[in-house]
Amino acid sequence: MKTLLAIIKFQFHDTLRSKWLAIYTLFFLILSYALLSFTKEPGKVILSLLNINMIVIPLTSLVFGTIYLYSNRDYIILILSQPINRKVLFVGLYLGLSLPMAISFLVGTGIPLLIFIKIFSGESVVLLFLFLGGIFETFIFVSISFLIASLNDNKMKGLGLAIFLWLFFSALYDGLVLIIMQIFMVYPIEVPAIVLTMLSPIDLARLLVILNFDISALLGYTGAVYSQFLGSTTGLILSLLTLCIWVAIPFYLGLRCFNKKDF
């Protein structure tokens, strides 16, 4: 436990001081501030933020995560030659990257929203889920990236796979779901639709926010099914649980790979 805290502490320092994290924070800061200067309608701001977050966070988490493990490889070797359990190091590296990234997102998006907090007085719950969704995305995609980097020793292959996965979840998957629904239109496909949504962490996080919105037009097909079929509360709990599973499974598989790996 003491070694775990030591690893997290020093990785945290390292990540916090890096330039790209500053740029990442600045990006959210500017984005969130710019949106608020365009419009003072809370719904529009939240939706725009949601849509951009769901593209940017998975991409950066995947890319930074894989690069992080690859570029720290020799350092990992040095640490592993010390009396330390591999699993402890893996957890330490994971939290040492994902925590600063999550904080960076919170600070960057949060500060401008705090400045204009008055206009969001009616939407505080939605805002909360917007942040929760972003944090979940960070943890999910960093754990997927750690799995990718632990599986592949080849940097280019790993990075390529990471970018493909991002493309798949952020663009291809929605298209695939639409096609499937188009084909099976005549059948009752509510349950498969829910399952399909749960298979995409990005859709899940989006749903988390939208379920809490009053504007039903934004629900989309799966959203409507979710709220109708499960009711808002059950839907909410179910999507939160599935998001947790999305963090846990890649993390566990990555941990196993890392533990067996040759360095």
Binding site: H13, D14, R17, N72, L78, Q82, P83
Partner: peptide, 20 residues
């Protein structure tokens, strides 16, 4: 991992976290 308390290792390539 306890046996590694006895070992000091100097790897071929030196690499540490850049910002520390």
């Amino acid at each position: 991992h306890a046996y590694r308390y006895k070992i000091g290792y100097m790897p071929q390539i030196a690499s540490f976290p850049e910002n520390l």
